[in-house]
Every structure is written in structure tokens, then in C-alpha cells.
């Protein structure tokens, strides 16, 4: 899948960051507005796929020098860890906690352990999607 289309590559780079930011926005919005770990993860993966299409696998691997299989593990660890963490506080498995804080500039902000769990989902989804697409792509 080699291409020398400069316009496409340049556009892809710009769009990539736009998608990434949108994905991260969706992820953080998840608790209040449509979005969340799944969509965020998928969109992020989609953005990377876009780069894959514009450049080739080797270039992208150079840009993202991480093994996506590790990302799956890290994500699972986050999610299961958040769920298990509640045991330390002597509450049932999977009990989430949240609180509101007043931060300068941001104003009233809430912090959720559910967010950590969702972060795990986010990582897993990116990891899974990228692992699948990368392995299929590499096998060509």
C-alpha cells in the first residue's frame, strides 16, 4: 500500500490530529454527553488507520513505536485494577467513587474512578483494533 500522494499525506496528518482530539474529547465527555471509552478508542484507532492508509505500516510503526498488544494488557489491567481497587477500601468489587473539586480556571470539576475504568476500555479498544488491523496488514 505504498503511495506518494503528497496532498493526501499532508491532509491525513492534519486530519489525524483533528480526529485524535475529537476522540479524546468524546472520551472525556463520556460520562455526561454521548461518547466514552468505546467510541473514543475506536475513533483513535480509526485515526491511526487513516495514517496507515496514507503512509505505510513501517512509517506508522516508526511514529508509534509501541506494541499494541501491550496496550491491550495495560487496558485490561487498568479496568480490572479499578474494579479490584475498591476492595482495598472494603467495599464490594466494582464500587466506583466520585467527587467534585473546584479547580482554578476549570471551575467545578468532577473526578470519577469510573473514568479510570473507561480509560482501560479506551486502551483495550485501541489495542484490539490496531492489533487486528496491523497483523492483517503485515501479513500481506
Amino acid at each position: 500500500m505504498k503511495t506518494n500522494d503528497v496532498i493526501f499525506q499532508t491532509v491525513a496528518k492534519v486530519v489525524f490530529f483533528m480526529i485524535i482530539f475529537f476522540a479524546i474529547h468524546l472520551f472525556f465527555a463520556g460520562h455526561y454527553y454521548p461518547g466514552g471509552g468505546f467510541v473514543g478508542g475506536l475513533l483513535t484507532a480509526g485515526a491511526i488507520v487513516l495514517l496507515l492508509l496514507a503512509f505505510d505500516i513501517k512509517t506508522v510503526q516508526h511514529g508509534f513505536p509501541l506494541d499494541f498488544k501491550w496496550l491491550i494488557g495495560i487496558g485490561l489491567l487498568f479496568s480490572a485494577g479499578t474494579a479490584t481497587g475498591s476492595l482495598i477500601f472494603n467495599v464490594p468489587f466494582f464500587t466506583h467513587a466520585y467527587n467534585y473539586f473546584h479547580l482554578p480556571l476549570f471551575g467545578k470539576t468532577s473526578l470519577h474512578t469510573a473514568m479510570l475504568f473507561d480509560l482501560g476500555v479506551y486502551f483495550v479498544v485501541i489495542g484490539v483494533t490496531m492489533t487486528i488491523i496491523q497483523t492483517i496488514g503485515e501479513s500481506e
Binding site: 460520562h31 455526561y32 454527553y33 454521548p34 461518547g35 466514552g36 466520585y98 468532577s110 469510573a114
Partner: peptide, 8 residues
């Protein structure tokens, strides 16, 4: 749960 998006 302190959230607003029920599905999430």
C-alpha cells in the same frame, strides 16, 4: 454515579 449519560 454522578454522571449524566445514562448509557455510558
Amino acid at each position: 454515579a454522578g454522571g449524566e449519560n445514562m448509557v455510558n
